[in-house]
């Protein structure tokens, strides 16, 4: 059994009448790459801020590396690297100045931990004299990641690091995270993109302040307990309306060119019959293996 890096017990936080997170409990192992997946407003940022000692929980407790997030906040601030959801570096400072500033305030130097960030930094090094505000979105995130880990943190907390970043940079970014994980850093990351879930060791699906499920991506997919169909006809929009009206439909949502559909009936012939009765042409129905997104959609609709 590996060591526990983060442990959260019955954590709740309200803003006025709105419950941001509701009675959360989970544990994250040392060296794990743990993802929180959920839509905007699910409570991810609130949770991360509590873990980073930036907010006080209403009830419950959280600890990082066995330091309490409320009492030992000073110690925690020494061992975490935090990258907020909003780009939070000094726009009027150059890439290099930003890095060395964050190195200094954490009591280290760029040279000392250069090895740790080399792989990432090498990509932005050609622009090291450029002001951070003038970098592209992907570059900004890479720089922010460098700044967050310049002091060799034990826990890296990344709040939506890939939001607003192009697809290629997103992929690169996740590759970097996988590499970082190998050096033994515990990484928790939040994202609204479900497809990124499969890149984590374990994921927690979070919605409306509650954790719906915590497991490895594979297990979450294997929890998918019914047949999933991809359906296509000549008129996708009309089909969407028709399927939503159908009393046999469990979930139906657009996914690329197809609609992904689960039904209460075990027999898939009823789908074709129903669509024909609604005078759809070019009907195409096939059973498919669910991916992580299908699994989440099903969990969320429960």
């Amino acid at each position: 059994m590996s060591e526990i890096a983060i442990s959260v017990n019955n954590l709740s936080k309200k803003y006025g009448d709105i419950t941001a997170i509701n009675n959360l409990s989970f544990e994250i192992n040392k060296g794990e790459l743990f993802g929180f997946i959920g839509p905007d407003g699910a409570g991810k940022t609130t949770l991360f801020r509590i873990l980073c000692t930036l907010l006080l929980p209403d009830t419950g407790s959280a600890s990082l590396c066995s330091f309490d997030a409320v009492k030992d906040y000073k110690k925690i601030r020494n061992i975490i690297g935090y990258m907020p959801g909003k780009f939070s570096l000094y726009q009027d400072l150059s890439v290099e100045e930003n890095l060395s500033f964050f190195a200094t305030i954490f009591g280290t130097t760029l040279e000392e931990n250069y090895d740790l960030i080399r792989d990432i930094y090498i990509q932005i090094e050609p622009f090291k004299t450029r002001q951070a505000g003038k970098l592209s979105g992907g570059m900004k995130q890479k720089l922010a990641l460098c700044c967050a880990m310049i002091h060799k943190p034990e826990v890296l907390v990344l709040d939506e690091p890939t939001t607003g970043v192009d697809a290629v940079s997103r992929k690169e970014f996740w590759e970097m995270l996988r590499k970082l994980k190998e050096s033994g850093i515990t990484i928790i990351v939040s994202t609204p993109y479900m497809d990124e879930a499969s890149l984590c060791d374990r994921v927690a699906l979070i919605q409306g302040g509650n954790i719906m499920s915590t497991d490895t991506p594979e297990n979450i997919i294997s929890q998918f307990d019914t047949a999933l169909y991809a359906v296509k006809t000549h008129s996708m929009y009309q089909m969407m309306l028709d399927l939503k009206d159908w009393n046999q439909t469990e979930t139906a949502y657009l996914f690329g060119q197809y609609m992904h559909l689960t039904i209460k009936d075990k027999d898939n012939n009823t789908i074709e019959a129903y669509l024909k009765s609604k005078s759809h042409k070019d009907i195409e129905i096939k059973q498919i293996t669910p991916n992580i997104e299908d699994a989440f959609m099903r969990l969320m609709s429960k």
């Binding site: 801020r49 980073c52 000692t53 930036l54 000073k74 601030r77 020494n78 975490i80 935090y82 907020p84 909003k86 780009f87 939070s88 570096l89 000094y90 726009q91 964050f102 305030i105 954490f106 009591g107 700044c147």
Partner: peptide
């Protein structure tokens, strides 16, 4: 406003 205070607070400063 820029959110850098968040990082400063989460640092040992």
């Amino acid at each position: 406003e820029l959110g850098t205070m968040e990082i400063l607070l989460a640092s040992p400063l």
